[in-house]
């Protein structure tokens, strides 16, 4: 594919990715938000993280099928306990990786 065409594609991808990242910051950082909205937004991070991680652990394949007892979900248990205990993100990543690796060796 010619270079100009390729760069047209990535510029388009970059633009449509940038806009949703930028617009809410621009609109909502300048004016006060009502209290209920702030409270609702306060629950968005936990909801998003949960929505990202649970399907990774409990389903697999494309299209996804339910698979509750798989290596990824089993390793989530020690990873979760370590995160609860230590509250160290770096440590959690290392423990998760090593547990996953160890389980694969069994």
């Amino acid at each position: 594919m010619p270079d100009a065409e390729y760069f047209g594609v990535i510029l388009a991808m970059g633009l449509v990715t940038y806009l949703p990242r930028w617009m809410p910051l621009f609109v909502f950082s300048q004016k006060a938000m009502p209290g209920w909205l702030v409270e609702w937004l306060d629950l968005i991070p936990v909801a998003i993280l949960s929505a990202l991680v649970f399907p990774e652990l409990l389903t697999h394949g494309a299209p996804r099928t339910l698979d509750i007892l798989q290596a990824k979900s089993l390793v989530a248990v020690p990873t979760l306990l370590f995160a609860l205990r230590t509250r160290s993100l770096g440590g959690t990543v290392v423990v998760g990786m090593l547990s996953f690796w160890a389980l694969g060796k069994l």
Binding site: V46, L49, S50, L52, V53, E56, L57, K72, V75, A76, T79, L80, A83, S88, L89, T92, V93, V94, V95, G96, M97, F100
Partner: peptide, 8 residues
């Protein structure tokens, strides 16, 4: 995945 579990 481990990072997301920690962040969650």
């Amino acid at each position: 995945i481990a990072m997301f579990i920690g962040l969650l």
